[in-house]
Design a protein around this nucleic acid. Structure first.
Lengths: 197, 197
DNA sequence: TATTCTACATACGCACCGTATGTCAAGTTA
DNA sequence: TAACTTGACATACGGTGCGTATGTAGAATA
């Protein structure tokens, strides 16, 4: 029985996204060649432009996939914590550690914003931001956090985490600076508490 | 009297950097054409490759210039404050506001890290980071801040400020979210204090 | 089975970067 | 000051990569 059209199309989309993840992570967005990328999965640029419109569209799809994975993982880690406050700290630490992955760092943190613009304007609306924003909202409702703007808090926290990761990744001794970064992150986050520690 | 060689060379370097600032800010790094850029100041790519090596070299020079301007400005603003703690807050607010400038945002915050890598590895070593790091060090020495790693704190604070700025710039109503961002920044920073407010 | 549709391949043009080579004026030496 | 050297910049070329216009084979539909 021959394959249905939609099936092969889904497969090809997935193949292209997977190849793009590797290429973008390894060479960076601009240095990644679409010809090479598509040839690796036995397709041509024709398939690419048909499915994603242009090179940016492919990047957007890749970013969306990685962002979703990060968000669901952060959510799980946050949910495992004893309470929402511990959950927020755990989420932050998780983001820092996830951002050490070259794929995440290069694609989502560096090329993503530079090529696609602000994460809140991405099609995925940056699921990561949504997750921490909701956690912050719960904590404010519980009266544990100061009544600040939830989105502002989420943006600044994730921004701090992101820069921590960039710093760690660029450092000569990542294992040494990771705890320092997490320590600093916990201190900063504590500033949001009504009764700081 | 004819101009000295070194004089005209300095002039040409300055002209190219100025043109690049405009082009990079307006079109972004990758979309900026070196031919257009150089033609605007009546030069050719020959001058560019002789002076800066390649396109990245030109970006590095531009980033260095803007970064220096930002650092000196932040330092002045910080120094005007009553004490070092107020200075740190003022510096942070200043970064947020400076990052609203499209030139700063596009070149230093988006394309800079994506093309040149981590700011701490830049030739300028990111003067901005150095300034806030020193302020943090002074505050730790004074016993006002918890004894955390100064570089970690500086990185996370500047990261938070940067993301605040990106958020503001991308928002529909910048004038509305700016105070929210600054408020959140002050709350976060307070987490570093030994005796939080 | 004949026809339509479409996912993808093929082919072309254009823009751009980097380098290799050329050139002329500013410096240098005698 | 005249011959020579240096180097800052211009010119010319090749290679690569993106986007689009056009072609095509196989699935969908009747």
């Amino acid at each position: 029985m021959a394959k249905r059209r939609v099936e092969t199309m889904e497969e090809n989309r997935a193949k292209l996204i997977a190849a793009a993840r590797k290429a973008f992570a390894k060479k960076g967005y601009s240095a990644a060649s679409m010809d090479e990328l598509t040839a690796e999965v036995s397709l041509t640029r024709g398939a690419l432009y048909h499915n994603f419109g242009d090179k940016r569209g492919l990047l957007a799809a890749v970013v969306d996939q990685i962002d979703s994975e990060m968000a669901s993982r952060a959510q799980k880690i946050g949910a495992r914590a004893g309470n929402d406050w511990q959950g927020l700290l755990a989420e932050g630490a998780a983001y820092i550690e996830m951002a050490l992955d070259p794929e995440v760092q290069r694609i989502v943190l560096l090329d993503g914003p530079a090529v696609l613009g602000d994460p809140s304007r991405w099609p995925s609306q940056s699921s990561c931001l949504q997750v921490t924003k909701r956690t912050v909202e719960r904590l404010i409702a519980q009266g544990l956090l100061k009544p600040i703007d939830a989105e502002a808090a989420a943006r600044l926290l994730s921004g701090a985490a992101l820069n921590a990761a960039l710093w760690i990744a660029a450092s000569d001794d990542p294992k040494d600076v990771l705890p320092k970064a997490i320590q600093a992150f916990r201190s900063l986050a504590a500033g949001l508490l009504v009764n700081p520690v």
